[in-house]
Write a protein that binds this DNA or RNA. Structure first.
Lengths: 165, 165
DNA sequence: AGACAAAATGTTACATTGTTGCAATTCTTT
DNA sequence: AAAGAATTGCAACAATGTAACATTTTGTCT
């Protein structure tokens, strides 16, 4: 059996995850010439600090808890920037956002969402994604963005029967 | 080149589509022992009459236009029934519902959504869906529901050259 | 540095989408 | 017909997302 995706591993050093993600984002934006402003950084940080996808209003709350007063339009604008730059992904089935650990504008994504604990793992686009796009192409459909959201049970929740960490 | 999915074919007899879908739903519910009440039938009909996915409030409007006064909670309950019975699907990326022409509780679905005209085609679950589920399983994730939503251009819109909403 | 233009953020108000809780009705079963 | 379950109606509300415009910050040019 292969190793579980990082997001499903309990007990990892999440502060380190957040730290690494922020650094990667800073480097990425410098390379791209885009501006990861303090606000955008705080929003990205809030998203990363959570183990589960955060809704826009939850991000508001998280920032308020850190002493920042930020209102919805500002959050949505920051999220738009972050998503356009491939730093966060929107989980359509949950109206929530999760950090992406492979910065860069992604049009395709595959996610495993645990229905018990809410954790999300992002899988790299693989062969079957290519095959799907080819299949669509054979039907004369030009796929520009393909999102796969699988809901189920992660190993820990399937074993424990609990509802997560 | 294979044939385009029915939903992308212009000029088909859509009244017939709706009629057939309603009949199939009636048969399906009779077989399953579930109750396709007049209200649920009207909601299903409204969904089918539209070529593009309809939001819950658009369904309200459509029913009002047909002289039926129905409020959101009622719509959502009807949609819940219809979705549980595999008669409609919710497009998460659009907060909207589309009719399913293969009644039965589906946990998996693959959709091609044209960003220009909004038409949606449902593809049958195929090999690559199975492969994805197997891939998730190899990661110790038990996928119970897999939804693939591909946004792009259908043949007609690609030919027309517009880029849509 | 100073002035200007562009980008980003703040703020108010509002639009859309979805839910809760309870009352009234309808259907099924006995 | 009567009891119980399922369905629908309804009012109020919660959650999510956006438009429009004011203000501030940043980058660039002289």
């Amino acid at each position: 059996m292969r190793q579980a995706p990082a997001a499903f591993q309990r007990g990892h050093d999440h502060d380190q995850c957040v730290h690494d993600a922020l650094n990667a984002a800073i480097v990425h934006c410098r390379q791209e010439g885009t501006r990861l402003t303090p606000l955008r950084r705080k929003v990205l940080q809030a998203v990363w600090r959570s183990h589960v996808p955060l809704g826009a209003y939850e991000i508001c709350d998280a920032l308020v808890a850190h002493g920042e007063r930020v209102l919805p339009p500002t959050i949505y604008r920051a999220l738009e920037f972050l998503e356009n730059n491939g730093l966060v992904h929107r989980m359509a089935s949950r109206n929530a956002f999760i950090g992406c650990n492979q910065p860069g504008a992604h049009h395709h994504g595959r996610y495993l969402i645990c229905s018990a604990c809410g954790l999300v793992a992002e899988l790299p686009a693989g062969d079957n994604m290519d095959r799907f796009i080819a299949e669509a192409h054979a039907l004369n459909f030009e796929a520009r963005s393909v999102r796969v959201e699988a809901v189920g049970l992660c190993a820990a929740c399937a074993a424990g029967g609990d509802s997560g960490p």
